[in-house]
Amino acid sequence: MREGSLSRAALRAAAIVLALLLATLVMLAAHAPPLAAYANIVLGAVGSWDVAANVLVAWVPLLLATAGLLITFTAGLWNIGIEGQITLGAVFTTWMLRGLQASSVPPALILACAVVAGMVGGALWAMLAGALKTFGGVNEIFGGLGLNFVASALNLWLIFGPWKRPGVASMSGTVPFPPALWMVTVTPQSRLSISALVIALLGIGLVYGMLRGTHFGLRLKAVGRNEKAAYLLGVPTWQHMMFSFALCGIFAGLAGAIQVTSVYHRLIPSISSGYGYLGLMVAMLANFNAALAAPVALFFAALNVGSIQLPIVLRQDSSLAGVLQGTLVLFVLLAQGVRQKLTGKGAT
């Protein structure tokens, strides 16, 4: 076992080096200075308290999405529909805020209701994909993809239609909510909300504990690895699948709610910000391990935030961050394959 983990670490390191090498080649091909690029990404992510706070701001929804995805992955499901679930979370949150903002309900309560509404919205959308999967036999990847498109169209329609701002309906989104309905941030200028951070950490901790130490987590694992056997062993399988969808949806919806209440303070066209897809990558790179998810998500968030420096300082396109993330995950998958090939163990 020890030996195995050593060779695993060696291969992982090799994968990371190879990924960096490939990304470097890509940069050279684009006539970008690789060292300066890496340095700027690092500086852009940890160079000051402000940028570090920005990394944390990006970390929160990414971590929440990843936490949710770990649940569905455990149940053997590829919940690619998470983008739509984040969007619906944001839509429901906005809907609740719009409904209550003029009322006399205390702002804190409105905010709480809105966050809960977001969780419900995400869960409902996820359960739609779940119902299609469990009752209709529709593969969750394709059901989820379809629902993603529907969600983003719904979102656009709301922004440009029923919820358009009185002056100019715009890409800018709906009318911003009054500051009273913003999640309280560290300083008024900051976007970093301690409560959001706590929610995210609590979320991933919860998922970690649930998957590791509870009967529910174990049953979910059984369903994911062998649905038929799990059923024969007495696990109510479709209920568990639906439940895992719902839970993932809750996390996704929460991410959407935080996007609305603490980052953008309104509903915007691409409110999900690609966190769902990025979360899938994080989960893969973390090898579906909840304990690793937090640092990996932090790393990805840092890459995203750090890469902002590329166009500013080097006049390079910051999609380099995505290239880095992609090659990294790809090479880790390849390294895993090589290791399994060498040890003669099949893929699980």
């Binding site: 684009a30 990847i141 999609s319 995505g322 290239v323 993330q325 790809l330 390849l334 090939k341």
Partner: peptide, 28 residues
């Protein structure tokens, strides 16, 4: 190569490739 020779999940590798190729196309 990843899925046939190294026997990794086709869905996982394909998904990573889809994001990677997209960003690569924007960068290059």
């Amino acid at each position: 190569f990843a899925s046939i020779t190294l026997r990794q999940s086709q869905v996982a590798v394909g998904f990573v490739l889809t994001l990677l190729c997209r960003d690569l196309s924007y960068f290059l």
